[in-house]
Write a protein that binds this DNA or RNA. Structure first.
Lengths: 157, 157
DNA sequence: TACTTTGACTTTCTTTGACTTTCACTTACT
DNA sequence: AGTAAGTGAAAGTCAAAGAAAGTCAAAGTA
């Protein structure tokens, strides 16, 4: 007996497949309606199947005209995915700077982009406990790399 | 389906686009009439999409012959530092996206930079407790803006 | 035991409408 | 003629209603 969550997962993936772009927008209630389930079930599916480590980014808005946008980041099969898995769950500031400098050296990002990325990874500004900083930094770096991956891949192969 | 506020926003922006000057004058009631909405809806759009932080100034007059003047003003380093202080110590994701869109509109950043910035502010990826997200987001946004403003300064004449 | 499903409650954003304030123009009074 | 009061035409304010999505924990299931 297929789990509901799996059906919803497949459905969303096929929507993305059919779409011209690498993302789709859904209405949570509509989707819940199609599958005749609680709206919060959709959130569960998104959290468990469409999170960053699965290569997806979610954006949403509440209120009238609200929506959920599911963006696919094809980070799986190229060097970028290796980068991302290399980073792991935590990373020091100096290591993360090295990654960024490498991208810069290969002209994959601009000086300003590098500066922007570094600014956010700065040890001093991260407002969390000492031991959590490398964890937070790893997530921030990964999400930025994922964001860039689309663009970078197009140029690099 | 599409938010009424967004339609009105787009309409106003295209009016400014077409205008010879960097401003337009509207009649609140006429505009409300075009969109078949309550006049105060116009105020809502102005407050949320055409405020100072978004790079616009509003001037108006009541009474007979009244009008609303919407002025698009060039954003500068001064504007940026004002924005930084306006942000305060917490901010929602949608507000922060609006600010980034403003930078983009005024050609202070590229599409890729905008995407990069938005990615780290994403509600779903910030790995901290719910109530801390707006706080962390404010810090990240401000540090990136500061970095940009630095960078712009170097370049600028 | 871990994963899934459900539902009550919360938060965010938008839309509407009743009421208020301001302004230009007219009318009335000295 | 000059001022004061009245009138109607704007725009402003604010709170309530509406429309989504988010959260969290309890209950169900494999």
């Amino acid at each position: 007996m297929a789990r509901l969550s799996d059906l919803i997962e497949d459905f969303i993936k096929s929507l993305i497949e059919e779409a011209d772009e690498e993302y789709i927008e859904i209405k949570r209630n509509e989707l819940a309606n199609i599958f005749n389930c609680a709206p919060s079930q959709i959130n569960y599916v998104l959290e468990t199947r469409f999170n960053l480590s699965n290569g997806y980014i979610i954006e949403s808005r509440r209120g009238g005209g609200g929506y959920i946008k599911i963006i696919k980041r094809p980070v799986s099969k190229d060097w970028m995915s290796k980068l991302i898995s290399d980073i792991g769950d935590n990373i020091t500031e100096s290591k993360s700077r090295l990654y960024i400098d490498t991208l810069l050296e290969h002209n994959l990002i601009t000086e300003r982009e590098a500066a922007l990325m570094k600014s956010v990874l700065n040890e001093k500004i991260l407002p969390v406990a000492q031991y959590e900083k490398p964890i937070l930094r790893a997530i921030l770096l990964k999400v930025m790399l994922a964001e860039l991956s689309n663009n970078l891949m197009k140029r690099s192969d």
